[in-house]
């Protein structure tokens, strides 16, 4: 860790914690019981199906663990999770399949 002035780390933690809480509180806290316009409600219905794929796609193609290099075991594990999920509509089954495949491929790579 680069040399930090005393208190800098705690300042960072507090600022990030407070900012993150305000982001989470934002609409839920300040909008409260007011009804949202229909267009906003329609857009918000697609938050999970838009945010999660957008988070995952770059991590699948450029994983942090390999320093951003495309990695076949991770790519295959992601495809396996997606296909099993779409096929069986079961979160835990999909995750177990993907993680299991990755573990096996990683162990094989170590041989």
């Amino acid at each position: 860790m680069a040399e930090l002035a005393p208190g800098t780390l705690w300042f960072t933690i507090a600022a990030l914690g407070l900012g993150t809480y305000l982001i989470r509180f934002s609409f839920l806290g300040f909008l409260g019981g007011r009804t949202l316009p229909p267009l906003a409600l329609r857009l918000l219905r697609y938050v999970p199906v838009a945010v999660f794929p957008a988070l995952v796609a770059p991590q699948v193609l450029w994983p942090t663990a390999t320093g951003g290099e495309l990695d076949m075991p991770r790519l295959l594990a992601a495809l396996c999770t997606l296909l099993v999920g779409l096929w069986r509509r079961n979160v835990l089954l999909a995750l177990g399949a993907g993680l299991g495949l990755l573990l096996v491929l990683e162990l094989l790579r170590g041989l």
Binding site: V56, Q59, L82
Partner: peptide, 13 residues
């Protein structure tokens, strides 16, 4: 890679 896979699994249904 557990977390990206979690997000993928949760979005499929």
């Amino acid at each position: 890679f557990a977390v990206p896979l979690t997000f993928l699994a949760m979005v499929t249904p």
